[in-house]
Amino acid sequence: MQVNRSLPDKAMDHIDHALGRPLDPLQESYRNYFAAGQSLAIEMGQSPYWCFNGRPPGDNALSFFSVTDAGRAALAEYLKQIGDPHRAFIVSYQGTSTTVVATSRSKARRSYYLDIADVMPDLTYGDFLRKAKVHVVVPLRKVADEERSKQEASA
């Protein structure tokens, strides 16, 4: 799942961009590459967050990099630190459900309505609001962390 965001820290923004701006950077993403010019390539080559993957044949101006596990972890921590508001929501309507990335329940509901309104021209937003249900998706990692905290507290 992708997120439409831009991060103030340029180094973290490059990692986020290379991974396709995923909701959860610790999960496998559909992409993991970044093409950098010479000056940026020098910085990336010295960072533990990047792995050098070579250059295109006959082109010394570009270098290809991928994000390391340390880079994914750093991005996840950064997103937590800045309080990134993006979450996954399950929106259900008339027996179908879909996962929507948004910053609130109401924005997730509105996003799904806009997705289906083209194929359901008679559906009003008011009717959709009365019938649609929205639930927050709790990441499995968060559930596991909470269980671990409970076990440590009881020990």
Rank of each mutant, 00 (worst) to 15 (best):
G83F: 09
Y78V: 09
A102N: 00
S92C: 10
D122I: 05
T98P: 06
A74L: 08
D84V: 09
F128I: 03
L123M: 13
Q94W: 09
V136M: 10
F128P: 02
M120S: 07
I82C: 07
T124P: 03
R109C: 01
S106V: 15
Y113Q: 03
S106Y: 13
Y78E: 06
L129H: 08
H86D: 01
K133C: 08
G95F: 11
R87V: 03
A74W: 14
P85C: 04
V101K: 00
I82E: 06
I90H: 03
D118T: 11
A102K: 00
T103L: 01
T96K: 09
A73F: 07
S92Y: 10
G126H: 11
K80Y: 10
I90M: 04
V136P: 05
D122S: 10
A73L: 12
G95W: 13
H135K: 07
S92G: 11
L123S: 06
R109A: 01
K80P: 03
Y78P: 04
R105S: 08
S106F: 15
A132E: 02
A132S: 15
V91D: 03
Y113K: 02
R110F: 08
T99R: 10
T103S: 01
A132Y: 06
V134F: 00
Y112G: 02
Y113I: 01
A74D: 08
D122N: 11
